[in-house]
């Protein structure tokens, strides 16, 4: 029984198209702004929705005259290292909380969940003090070490769910065969939890890539900035906005997360909703 074509148009295609236009228009706008000439950008009489003389000049400026490549490298380094640290911590903690019986497990799981909900805007000020005391201000380490606080809580919860879904018997039979717990964990449980680890990794990487307030507050020299902070703070000179290069930077800074996520959308949605559905 399929709905009639006009009905399907009204209940599906029309509203869906409308939603797509609203949600995607700003990206289209970024793209065409980044390839318009300056003259076309400020031409109030022409049709703004199309590019008549596309140019890559703004991209050239972005690469040749700003620190964009440096920021990209910084963002990549920070995201990869922070994600790796967070994954190691979360795998260990998640396994411990999901699989081992010990006093205080419930309280610790609860405490980790609470830290998940502590927003960065509540902590950035005192954290700046801590970062200063440790002598880390204006270094990549200030971000590499603090980003895991945003990543570990949710990764741990996500992985706890995955570890719980793996039958205990598999592990217990290995223990009976004489394997140590650590061995049972690395050889049997971890390979089965790989989809969960992948979800957690993707999630952690994109969150690091997108982080803004810590990176804004902990850094002040151009060499140390990340893409979001660099683009926002350095491509605006006084009151002069370089719209073309701004858009080029914003677009290029968004592409990596958009790509990663479109390749792994299933995992991503799995990670995103794991808390909501399983929890």
């Amino acid at each position: 029984m399929t709905a009639s074509a006009p009905r399907r148009l009204m209940t599906l295609y029309l509203p869906l198209s409308l939603a797509s236009i609203v949600l995607l228009f700003p990206f289209y706008w970024m793209l065409i702004t980044s390839i318009k000439t300056d003259r076309e950008l400020i031409d109030l009489n022409g049709l703004p929705f199309w590019v008549f003389q596309p140019t890559l000049e703004h991209y050239r400026v972005l690469f040749a005259e700003t620190g964009f490549l440096r920021w990209a490298l910084n963002t990549l380094t920070i995201s990869v290292v922070a994600t790796a640290i967070s994954l190691v911590c979360s795998i260990l903690a998640g396994y411990s909380l999901a699989r081992l019986r010990f006093r205080g497990a419930g309280a610790i799981a609860g405490a980790i969940f609470v830290t998940y909900l502590v927003p960065q805007t509540l902590l950035f000020l005192p954290l700046l003090e801590v970062v200063r005391q440790l002598g880390l201000s204006n270094t990549l380490w200030s971000m590499i070490l603090t980003y895991p606080t945003i990543l570990i809580p949710f990764s741990t919860w996500l992985l706890m769910g995955y570890f719980r879904s793996i039958p205990r018997e598999l592990e217990e039979s290995a223990l009976i065969d004489g394997a140590s717990r650590l061995r049972a964990m690395t050889q049997i449980v971890l390979p089965l939890a790989l989809p969960g680890i992948l979800s957690a990794g993707i999630f952690a990487f994109t969150l690091s890539w997108n982080e803004f307030i810590y990176a804004l507050v902990f850094t002040n020299s151009t060499d140390i900035k990340t893409i979001p902070v660099g683009v926002v703070t350095e491509l605006v000179k006084g009151d002069v906005y370089f719209w073309g290069s701004l858009m080029a930077g914003a677009l290029l800074g968004s592409v990596p997360v958009a790509l990663i996520y479109s390749f792994f959308v299933e995992h991503y949605v799995g990670g995103l909703t794991a808390g909501a559905v399983k929890g």
Partner: peptide, 19 residues
């Protein structure tokens, strides 16, 4: 469609805010 519609939430907010 699902992948495309998640984009506003997935890209860095500071960058989409520039748009």
């Amino acid at each position: 469609a699902r992948a495309a519609l998640l984009l506003p939430w997935i890209v860095p907010t500071a960058l989409s805010a520039i748009a």
